[in-house]
Computed example of a mutant assay.
Amino acid sequence: MSTEIRQSDLRNDNAVIMRRVAAGESFVVTVNGRAVADVVPQQRDTGRRAFVPTADAVAALTSTPLSRSDARRWLADIRQDDDTPRDPWARQSSGA
């Protein structure tokens, strides 16, 4: 649960409030009684990578080889579908 504080309290007691946030507390900052900001602890690293190194991607993609029949079916499926981008707002000719 967040503690409500006025902007002036945040300004005047900044160091104290930041120590409390670092300890895990959250605050809702108000101006003239209206909530304008949340001061919350920084989210911790979840351990998930923001990127995948090339070597890892190549290893993952090559670790499950497709059989030739799988490749042929995939290629036939791709060729069969018409995924041509179309403008949804283009006027259709009504023929009239």
Rank of each mutant, 00 (worst) to 15 (best):
D82R: 04
V28D: 06
L10M: 05
R11C: 07
D77K: 04
D70C: 02
A22S: 08
E25G: 01
I5R: 00
T62Q: 06
S8L: 04
I17T: 02
V52N: 05
P41S: 06
E4K: 02
S94F: 07
L66D: 09
G95M: 03
R6C: 02
R19K: 12
R6I: 11
S69A: 13
L75T: 12
I17F: 00
G47W: 02
V31N: 14
R19N: 13
V29D: 01
V29M: 03
L75R: 13
Q80M: 13
R79A: 12
A35Y: 02
R49K: 14
Q92W: 04
N32M: 12
D77R: 06
V52M: 04
L66T: 10
M1F: 07
N14V: 03
S93E: 14
A59C: 05
A90N: 08
T30Q: 03
S2C: 08
V40W: 07
Q92S: 11
V40Y: 00
D82H: 08
I17Q: 00
I5T: 02
N14R: 13
V21E: 00
D81N: 09
V21Q: 03
R6K: 14
A37R: 06
T3L: 06
I78F: 04
G47D: 01
R49I: 00
Q43D: 11
L75Y: 05
L10Q: 02
R11D: 14
P53M: 05
Q7L: 09
T46N: 10
A22I: 11
A37M: 06
Q7I: 11
V29F: 01
R44K: 12
F27G: 01
A55M: 10
D77S: 08
V40H: 05
R91K: 14
D45C: 05
A96R: 15
F51Q: 10
P53W: 05
A22P: 00
A15E: 09
D87F: 04
N14Y: 13
D87G: 06
D77H: 09
L75V: 13
T54H: 01
V39W: 04
R91F: 02
R72K: 09
D77Q: 08
L66Q: 09
R6F: 11
R73L: 14
